[in-house]
Design a protein around this nucleic acid. Structure first.
Length: 842
RNA sequence: GCCGGAGUGGUGGAACUGGUAGACGCGCCGGAUUCAAAAUCCGGUCCCCGCAAGGGGGUGUGGGUUCGAUUCCCACCUCCGGCACCA
């Protein structure tokens, strides 16, 4: 199916011609700049503002259907809110730093900056064809120095506040992309971009103390009712707060200093009396100490260190350990417990050591079996009938039992046991209650070129020193040539660039050559749109007026990455007084994928449909309409070309109905009081459609049912053949309402229909229609009559009729009588205007 | 293993607060129009019995609550997504 090309054929001028209609509407929007948001109004009336944002795009060079879906959803919400009289801001920009630009540079010898800006131009052109209501005056790319300078400025403030640290830690190293990745960027042990198996390496890197905000980030989630539950659950999971006890053991053995202690973290202090050994990580200082006199242990530690395996493999790897000649003293019993070095203990979590209770932890149990360590049962099922507990077969991990073999703690249940043992440890000075998190500080150093330079100077005498604010931005040199995968900034061409004087001591120092993780840019871009033109400050009062984003739209893949970092960064900005409010995104809509032939659209699957070809073939409105109609926003939508053709047919029919009506000349005024039943029905449908669509757009965000509601209305209009003045007036009203309701979804056609129907001004300046309640009212309604819950008849009754009236009508029905024959009425349930259920028995 | 979500015609989905299951679209079948086709328009389309009126069954499975359950509760199955050596 092809739209007719007006240049190629002699299409009648009153046919629906998407190409012309869309070009005209877009020209109008561009010329009037009607989507440029009003800062002054946002400042004057905070309640009237509506900030609608779709996650910005990476300029890969090609827009894909995911972008179309995301931006169409955002645009529908933005346009609906404009109709509702809100002062709407909907900007776009480009998430422009990142690896693909470097890969292009390496493979094709194009400088990353040039590649990026050219891609932005290509994509902007594709993007504009879809007719989004965007304020283009605020557009920026994150690789603009005018943008990233503020990121550098903020970083330095955070450094001075102590929220930035340079730490040498075990990091995720991507051997293909030659860079460190954050935990959030490792998927199944592989780099999220390269797919390469991640190695563990020790490296100095810059980190942001997101853990300092862990509690706030977690607790706030409970109050964020504009966010989908699954995303909140994922973030809770990711932060992973647990409550437990830190227990300190005295340690004895050769070379152990007097008073030296070994700390472990446990969430099961209730089982502490069953602890039969302790295990430390290979990197733990005690492991180091013991290995100095034990070559085999030293070899074991070395083997652990050499493991470059992915975390996924670590989880399934054989649990190995080695005994040391050290002992730990159980603080409550005084027992001497052996200290093991074990490959499964993580130095990064807790204190890098664990107490082992093989009776009640499966991993400890397996380890104890393997190395022939004692297994003691300290928890027993509450009563015999409970689930079997055979400590010789497996650990008993249930928290439902009671303590046994635990001296003074015998008989206590989980919580009481937890508290009693925690208190006993505190009283002895051998422990404290502690909260732990799975969340780690955010490592932001990347060893790549195409990113925001980290504004730091490494001085051999003063250590790391921030580049003074008046020397910002540290501009990323763009005239570069790549020699291999490594950043040119680290190569000989930039030896001079790297050499600087230390701002503190004046001595010779080196610039940091790492760049920021690109999630740094995307963590605050939403706020910058409010004042993108300000080159004096990072954020001005306008950011306080426009933020938070009222509606954020994007992909589920960012559920923990971008959406957690932004929440964190927003709190950092808040604490600097740059924004107000605790959260950046009030309401969040995460969309499902776009599939074709049951598979995700991708180059490798060979099923890619490009937005350009769709707009050429079907028009922007039909593309947008099908995108909204195919499935609810959060579900996967199956792209179907016959489905889009259905949308074309629908738009064509609506256009035809309006054209035909207006061809009949001037439409008389509507006299609502004097309509016959048929016209009343059409009017009722029209106003019911407005009411339903209002709820669907605003509260439910069910845009698929908005489309079907307007389709139903159009079908109803088609059924009305009344060409009398009253008939034409009612159809005119119905078409006007259909146009308004559909306009957020198919804005070009509706722009044209608005004027075609004779309305003055432009549709973008129109307001959402008022529902005429009298149009919804009806004299009689159809009710369902059930006998014993089964539908036996449908009857007509006056609207609002009481039970007796409806009952009288229902009992007159032959089929109702048939099923009541010889039985007594036990009960009658009457749902006014809907249903009557007669319950009979006997 | 833990957490979150979903199972409805040939198909995408609708049924929002427990009240006519299958709206709307796609596909398919039949008809009109056409020399013919495309496009368009009209009618039909959950399954079974019946000429019909009507009846019976039906929302992953099994139970429960209720006058009434796709909707609420319990158990289970399947699928999707996330997390997972986290002590």
């Amino acid at each position: 199916m092809e739209l007719q090309d007006p240049a190629a054929g002699d299409a009648p001028s009153n046919e629906y011609d998407a190409r012309t209609i869309e070009a005209q509407a877009q020209a109008y929007w561009n010329e009037t700049r009607c989507f440029e948001a009003d800062d002054a109004a946002a400042a004057a009336n905070g309640d009237g503002k509506f900030y609608c944002l779709s996650m910005f795009m990476y300029p890969s060079g090609q827009m894909h259907m995911g972008h179309v879906r995301c931006y169409t959803l955002g645009d529908v919400i933005a346009r609906y809110n404009r109709l509702k009289g809100k002062n709407v801001l909907q900007p776009v920009g480009w998430d422009a730093f990142g690896l693909p630009a470097e890969n292009a540079a390496i493979q094709r010898n194009v400088p990353p900056a040039k590649w990026t800006y050219e891609n932005i131009d290509t994509m902007r052109a594709q993007f504009k064809r879809l007719g989004f209501a965007i304020d283009w005056s605020r557009e920026f790319a994150t690789c603009d120095p005018g943008y990233y300078r503020w990121e550098q400025w903020m970083f330095n403030r955070l450094f001075r506040k102590g929220l930035v640290e340079r730490k040498t830690t075990v990091v995720n190293w991507d051997p293909v992309d030659q860079t460190v990745l954050a935990n959030e960027q490792v998927e199944n042990g592989r780099g999220w971009r390269s797919g390469a198996l991640i190695e563990r390496r020790e490296m100095p890197q810059w980190t942001l103390k997101i853990t300092a905000y862990a509690d706030e980030l977690l607790d706030e989630l409970d109050r964020m009712d504009g966010w989908p539950e699954n995303v909140r659950a994922m973030q809770r999971n990711w932060i992973g707060r647990s409550h437990g006890v830190e227990i300190r053991f005295d340690v004895r053995g050769e070379g152990v200093a007097e008073g030296e202690q070994l700390a472990v973290y446990t969430t099961r202090p209730d089982t502490f009396m069953g602890c039969t050994y302790v295990a430390v990580a290979a990197e733990h200082p005690l492991a180091q100490l013991a290995s100095e006199r034990d070559p085999e242990l030293a070899a074991f530690r070395e083997a652990c260190r050499q493991v470059k395996a992915a975390e996924e493999e670590l989880a399934t790897m054989e649990k190995l350990g080695r005994a040391t000649d050290l002992v730990a003293i159980h603080p409550l019993t005084g027992a001497e417990l052996p200290v093991y070095v074990a490959n499964f203990v993580l130095m990064e979590y807790g204190s890098g050591a664990v107490m082992a209770v093989p009776g009640h932890d499966q991993r400890d149990w397996e380890f104890a079996r393997k190395y022939d360590l004692p297994i003691v049962q300290v928890v027993a099922p509450k009563d015999e009938s409970d689930e079997a507990c055979d400590i010789d077969a497996a650990a008993y991990v249930s928290k439902d039992g009671v303590l046994v073999n635990s001296g003074p703690f015998d008989g206590l249940a989980f919580e009481a046991g937890f508290d009693a043992i925690a208190e006993a440890l505190v009283a002895k000075g051998a422990g404290e209650r502690q909260t732990n998190y799975r969340l780690r500080d955010w490592g932001v150093s990347r060893q790549r070129y195409w990113g925001c330079p980290i504004p730091m100077i490494l001085c051999p005498t003063c250590g790391p020193v921030p580049v003074p604010d008046d020397q910002l931005p540290v501009e990323l040199p763009t005239d570069v040539t790549f020699k291999g995968v490594s950043s040119p900034l680290k190569g000989p061409d930039f030896a001079e660039w790297r050499k600087v004087c230390c701002p503190e001591c004046g001595g010779e120092a080196e610039r940091e050559t790492d760049t920021f993780d690109t999630f740094m840019e995307s963590s605050w871009y939403y706020a910058r749109y409010a004042c993108a033109d300000n080159d004096e400050v990072m954020l001005d009062a306008r950011a306080r007026h426009w933020c938070p984003v009222d509606q954020y739209v994007g992909g589920i893949e960012h559920a923990v990455l971008h959406l957690l970092y932004s929440r964190f960064y927003h709190k950092l900005l808040r604490d600097e007084g740059l924004v107000v409010g605790d959260e950046p995104f009030k309401r969040l809509l995460l969309l499902g994928m776009v599939n074709k032939d049951g598979k995700k659209m991708s180059k490798s699957a060979g099923n890619v449909v490009t937005p350009d070809e769709l707009v050429d073939q079907f028009g922007a409105d039909a593309t947008r309409t099908f995108m909204m109609f195919g499935a609810p926003p959060d579900q996967t939508v199956e792209w179907s070309s016959s489905g889009v053709e259905g949308s074309v047919r629908f738009l064509k029919r609506l256009h035809g109905q309006a054209t035909e009506l207006m061809a009949g000349g001037a439409v008389p005024a509507l006299e609502a009081g004097t309509l016959d039943e048929g016209l009343k029905t059409l009017r009722r449908k029209a106003h019911a459609t407005v009411a339903k669509a209002d709820d669907d757009f605003g509260r439910r965000q069910a845009f698929n049912t908005v489309v079907s509601a307007v389709m139903e209305l159009s079908n109803e209009i088609g059924r009305c053949a009344d060409d009398s003045p009253a008939g034409r007036a009612v159809r005119h009203e119905a078409l006007t309402l259909a146009t308004l309701v559909l306009s957020p979804i198919a804005p070009h056609l509706c722009h044209a229909l608005w004027n075609l129907l004779g309305h003055a001004g432009a549709l973008v300046d129109a307001r959402w229609p008022e529902v005429d309640d009298s149009a919804l009212a009806r004299e009689s309604v159809q009710l369902v009559v059930q006998v014993n819950g089964k539908v036996r008849s449908r009857v007509e009754a006056p609207a609002g009729a009481d039970e007796d009236t409806v009952k009288a009508i229902a009992l007159a029905e032959a089929n109702v009588q048939r099923f009541m024959e010889g039985k007594t009425v036990r009960k009658v349930i009457h749902v006014p205007d809907r249903l009557l259920n007669i319950v009979v028995g006997g």
